[in-house]
């Protein structure tokens, strides 16, 4: 369902062209849990942005659900982000002025879901991540782990097939990180495609496959030996 063919990405810094991704080939099948590991600067965040349709590759092709997304107009990309992809970020990226439940409703606002239906669905999702009792708190009234739970609920708002998580446990302590990872594993167990970018080997081992990135290339694919 996700297919990258020879994807490259370069940035111009001053008058120099700096390659960040150097020909990525990648296939992720529906229902897979894939981890991407690599040191900082290896291009894994850029890969995530391209996969999440927030950035366009310099060359190569990207197929989502069997169709190339390279030349789609920006409105169509927005629709795909809204309907097919859920983002979970390292720094949670909740909108500070909005309560937890309003944050969870936001993707549904952009999808045009009517208010009452939206609220019910948001509460359901908050319930699922164990945050129903804090639904009306502002993000700054929540702990890091709680914010990430809200962010996951928000990522699931429009029931996307793919969940993209960029260092989802990076800003959390061991135990809270473990709890978040368990939620992601549960989501995978429910059949959702999950891609996690991390440099925490503990998190990476939750994946069915681990892709190791160095200098803009996937250098090694590992299948963790321990059953999860």
């Amino acid at each position: 369902m996700i297919r990258l063919v020879g994807v490259t990405k370069s940035y111009t810094v001053g008058d120099q062209l700096v390659p960040v991704l150097k020909g990525i080939h990648l296939e992720v099948h529906p229902g897979e849990f894939v981890a991407v590991m690599g040191p900082s600067g290896s291009g894994k965040s850029t890969l995530m942005h391209i996969l999440g349709l927030l950035d366009r590759p310099t060359s190569g092709d990207y197929e989502l659900n069997g169709a190339s997304v390279l030349h789609l107009p920006s409105n169509e990309l927005a629709r795909l982000r809204n309907q097919h992809i859920g983002f979970v970020f390292q720094n949670f990226h909740l909108i500070p002025r909005m309560s937890a439940v309003r944050n969870v409703e936001l993707p549904m606002v952009y999808a045009g879901v009517p208010r009452s239906k939206r609220r019910a669905r948001a509460m359901e999702l908050l319930e699922m991540v164990g945050m129903a009792n804090r639904a009306h708190h502002l993000p700054n009234e929540l702990s890091g782990g709680q914010r990430q739970r809200v962010a996951i609920a928000r990522a699931l708002a429009n029931d996307p097939a793919v969940l993209l998580a960029d260092e989802p446990t990076g800003a959390l302590d061991q135990q809270t990180g473990g709890e978040i990872l368990r939620i992601l594993q549960d989501l995978h167990a429910d059949g959702r495609t999950v891609m996690v970018i991390t440099h925490d080997p503990r998190v990476a081992r939750a994946g069915q496959r681990i892709l190791h990135m160095v200098d803009g290339e996937i250098v090694r694919e590992e299948v963790p030996d321990e059953p999860r």
Binding site: L54, N75, A78, R81, H93, I95, Y110, A111
Partner: peptide
């Protein structure tokens, strides 16, 4: 600015 980025990642169109 960051809020705008978040909204775009959640599916906001330019028009929105």
């Amino acid at each position: 600015t960051q809020e705008i980025g978040i909204r775009v990642s959640l599916g906001a169109r330019k028009r929105d």
